[in-house]
Design a protein around this nucleic acid. Structure first.
Lengths: 169, 169
DNA sequence: CTAAACTTTCAGAATAAAGTGAAACAAATT
DNA sequence: AATTTGTTTCACTTTATTCTGAAAGTTTAG
């Protein structure tokens, strides 16, 4: 396998992975491209490499910057803006985890908290009992997950990996 | 907040969560509905409750059964089929983790393995070096994640929570 | 200040995903 | 074996998401 085949594979698969993670395909591909690029790339570079429009590249870069995994960079004596990906895999993972925690876990915890301990004479005993039992169990699980994620996000990789080694033995 | 408001909230929020996890909204809502239902429900029950078509309910139930989190159930002296959700939150979480590991992590590991150690005289030294460094780092991380997930999937909840307590202290 | 070079935005077009409903299929009952 | 009851499929419609490209906005240099 030569370099351009490998590059193509990487970008494509990253796109597929992104899709199943709710990140759109093009965004994920741009991220994949930046990740393996030795130099920061300009909007033009990305347009050309992935054959997508200026508007799309611009929007996607903005979104990747919102995720905190792509950064603007200026080169000396160049007006143009360049973009580079976070390359530390640990930092990438924690950034993504942090964002997902914020966007997905917190709203669920908020909802589950709101519906704790329903009492309603109009509903059957079974219905009330079931929703209370489930929402309590789910909330407990969500809170545990939240704590683990917070710990994960703030930890450094060496701590985490040494813990993992113990955990998975 | 009364019972039907809570039920509505739960189903809606579960739908939103599903979407951002790549599970379609309706599927997630059906799962949410089954999760808080004290009795297994029939296709008709679900159609009526969520105002969706027979075809859609049927397809969605099939997919949820593929995930392993919804099961068919027969009631005595009833020809009709009923469906119920797995209600053990721990089992739910491990099933989902298992499926995602299989659908998402394994293909990425496969790809990263294939592109290890690219050599190509036509590409620049920097390009080759960068893709090799990144793919190696990503593969290491993916393999670690795979191990953790396997451990997680096969563990029982009591082991996991006692480990967590230590981990997050 | 004006022009040139570059960047961003956004309305509408294109594409993809989800949902419908009627027809085909299957099973059980008489 | 015919009818009734229930289930599944799939071509088509609807809805949602993504992408384009031209216009507006910025910045820098002369």
């Amino acid at each position: 396998m030569n370099y351009s085949e490998a590059k193509y594979e990487m970008i494509q698969q990253w796109g597929v992975l992104g899709s199943s993670w709710g990140i759109n395909k093009t965004e994920a591909q741009i991220h994949g491209l930046l990740m393996i690029s030795p130099e920061p790339l300009s909007v033009e570079d990305i347009m050309e490499e992935l054959k997508i429009s200026r508007g799309n590249v611009s929007m996607s870069l903005r979104s990747l910057m919102d995720w905190g995994i792509v950064h603007k960079r200026f080169k000396l004596n160049e007006r143009k803006e360049f973009f580079e990906s976070e390359k530390d895999v640990w930092k990438l993972a924690t950034k993504v985890a942090q964002e997902r925690q914020k966007r997905e876990l917190l709203p669920v915890i908020e909802m589950l908290t709101r519906i704790q301990n329903i009492k309603d004479p109009k509903a059957t005993k079974e219905e009330v009992s079931e929703i209370n039992t489930m929402s309590k169990a789910l909330l407990k699980f969500a809170n545990q997950s939240d704590k683990v994620l917070s710990k994960f996000s703030n930890a450094d990789s060496s701590w985490f990996f040494s813990t993992l080694v113990k955990l998975i033995k």
